[in-house]
């Protein structure tokens, strides 16, 4: 069943008619040709599809496009500003934090949100109970990025990249 959906994607307003079954991921990839977000599993298990939706990281494969009508979406394609890569994108290059690169757009979008969450004092499972601030130790980074799998096992350098940007 068709519905009309309006979204801001990487700063550009988009208005599309989609089937109610369309996930945000399929809308981005199949309808808008934005293929940074990857379909690793389509079940929320790998994080390759991670995008920022209204400023928060989500699995685009589990989000129905129709349920997020009016939303503001940023994908890996929308992180650079005026041609300059986002500091995390540079950090991934510097730290050699990838091998095949399939998980990388999701890792980076996820890490961008992790920096914001930590700055806002949002706890994780390894944050000491009662702590009102969060400092991004390796343990915190690993826990917070556990929703992003890397089949190439580039984890060591992914943590290094994120730590290099963390305050």
């Amino acid at each position: 069943m068709d519905v009309e959906v309006a979204l801001h994607v990487n700063g550009t307003p988009q208005r599309l008619t989609v089937d109610t079954r369309t996930s945000l991921l399929d809308l981005l990839r199949e309808r808008l040709g934005i293929t940074g977000p990857k379909k690793g599993c389509d079940h929320g298990q790998c994080g390759a599809c991670t995008v920022l939706l209204d400023g928060r990281r989500v699995n685009a494969c589990l989000a129905l496009a129709v349920a997020h009508d009016g939303g503001n979406v940023i994908t890996i394609e929308g992180l650079a500003e005026n041609g300059d890569l986002h500091p995390l994108q540079n950090a991934f290059v510097e730290a050699d934090a990838l091998q095949c690169g399939y998980c990388t757009p999701g890792q980076i979008c996820s890490a961008v949100a992790v920096l914001d969450e930590a700055a806002a004092g949002v706890p994780s499972y390894v944050t000491p109970p009662g702590a009102s601030t969060v400092s991004l130790s390796d343990e915190e980074i690993r826990e917070r990025l556990s929703g992003n799998l890397c089949r190439c096992g580039a984890y060591v350098n992914i943590v290094r990249a994120v730590r290099s940007v963390a305050p």
Partner: peptide, 16 residues
Amino acid sequence: LSQALLSGASGQIRNL
């Protein structure tokens, strides 16, 4: 309760 919530799923899933 906070710890139980944080032990579940991933940051992305908990946001939805």
